[in-house]
Design a protein around this nucleic acid. Sequence first.
DNA 1: CTGAAAGCGCTAACAC
DNA 2: GTGTTAGCGCTTTCAG
Lengths: 339, 339
Amino acid sequence: MSKSSKQRATLNDVARLAGVDVSTASRVLRGDTAQRVGKETKDRIHKSAKELEYLPNSVARALRTSKTYTLGIVVPQLDNPVFSAVIRGAERAAVAKGYSLLISHREPGETATTIANLSKRSRVDGLLVASLDEDEVLRTDLEAANVPYVLLNRQLPGAYYAVVLKSREAAKRATDYLISLGHRRIAHLSGRLGGFNANERLKGYCDALREAGIDYDSSLVEEAGYTFEGGKSAMLDLLGGDATAVMAATMVSAAGAMVALHEAGRQIPEDMSIIALHDGAIAEMLYPALSTVGMPTEEMGSVAAAILIQLLAGEQPEAVAALPAGPLIVRASTGPMTI
Amino acid sequence: MSKSSKQRATLNDVARLAGVDVSTASRVLRGDTAQRVGKETKDRIHKSAKELEYLPNSVARALRTSKTYTLGIVVPQLDNPVFSAVIRGAERAAVAKGYSLLISHREPGETATTIANLSKRSRVDGLLVASLDEDEVLRTDLEAANVPYVLLNRQLPGAYYAVVLKSREAAKRATDYLISLGHRRIAHLSGRLGGFNANERLKGYCDALREAGIDYDSSLVEEAGYTFEGGKSAMLDLLGGDATAVMAATMVSAAGAMVALHEAGRQIPEDMSIIALHDGAIAEMLYPALSTVGMPTEEMGSVAAAILIQLLAGEQPEAVAALPAGPLIVRASTGPMTI
DNA sequence: CTGAAAGCGCTAACAC
DNA sequence: GTGTTAGCGCTTTCAG
């Protein structure tokens, strides 16, 4: 029926078939409102386009307009459920606005190359950046990239676009719950101390203690980072103490802590209650099922993408969007304090 | 020091600075071997390029050569560790060859749109496709996309490029281990029956039984799909029977099964041994830690990307690459059969 | 060995 | 209302 059909139709083909100039076809097909085109001509063009199954060549368009409609996202780990969620959210929002998502996994330390690659080589319009690297490093690389960017769950000094989770609030909520169960000796498995997120969570933990009139005891906070191994060894260190409950900075470190507890023969929650920030499928898989305070990680991705797209459209979004913590989800890993 | 430096230098700028024609600059900077260029000219061009921090504009190049050096990957779930691993592998291989990876998450049923978007709108050079959809649907969409593609862990009738895991072998290895432990009533939590992977695994399971002289009993195989919930409810169905061990098609369904077991008050592995195909971080987090037979999922991603890139280079790779199953990893979820 | 010229497919002034 | 023109930045014959 159709011609050789192997070659894609170009705007030129459409114009010729409709008997108009290519510029007119462009205006019509793009829905350009500035200039009026005769209804009849318009119809002919649309008809031709449909007949030829015309689809604009995005590369040519990108060259002409210097907009690729592609966003880059750089993440430090691909296997962490938190980042999967962020990517999912970003992808959804991007696609909804007609953008594509270029993904770039990057080992810590490779930030510079990755960002350069993405922005220079691949020509993305903007960048979504989740990093575990030091702030200064990140800052320099990002500036060099010379494209708009929004940071994921991290604030750099000096007012840049970022979307963050209210992890201080989440940490307080989690700790509050432990306190409400009667616990007083509550340990905290922190993130990478000094980092933005770890600090926020630590503050939330302290907020809760203070409000309950419990003294802060530095021997109860152990740095676990955001890994399984980190959680495991941090919990090991805590085992000699008198903590009866622990609030972990993230699900994955909580999972490590639970393994340490099992190996030491402690009962959860009888001997030790445990709650974590971030909710996800893993929480249900653990034994006992992990109580959590959810965090809208997927939403963080979609909001970040939306902000970036606004930026690209020349709008002026709020510099930092702070997403409220999710709900407390009580499962089996937490229980009342028993003497 | 430098000029306004906001604008990126073009090939034209480099050529002008070096006092040569843009075509010569192009030849040199591209390392074109076909035509010889004077050493002296060459040096001048390289020097100018460095001075101006020239980086080729990939969009312009893509328009000219109709190659974007971008691969698209479409995955059905972003939160499944199996797909995270595949993406990681694909990204690594792509970047190593100078390609970028465009990611596209797709709900089952949206295949057509996604594939069309990726190939038409975003202009990828080729596609990496992991799907849970029906074969015919997939096939049609893929053909319409009109770009080279390689399938991930799935074979379509009619000889297309694919990389698959030897899951039959893996399933046999896992089942063999259960048999070696003395189990005779071994259940199987299968994938989506009728699907390529589910079939392969079922075959491997049967191979092992046959070899051991154990009769196949269809009441022992329950369809669990590849989800947590599926595993949980499949295990529930099995609880009334006399199985003493279970081989799950994937880690996530095994996790669901373990929860069902816990909730029913069964001991693992005393009352029920459990082993799964696929290894990953989750296996260590479960309680008891899950025995597995590993699968090279990350490698599947990198091999697929490598094949696709070969294809794009006009080479003729093997149509289907079958990756051997990984090792048996014995953890705590399996134990000898006890009466 | 190097330059001139054409053009990938599209958009955006600017004419008429 | 619609056509003309001039490129975006690069690659690639084809001359010389």
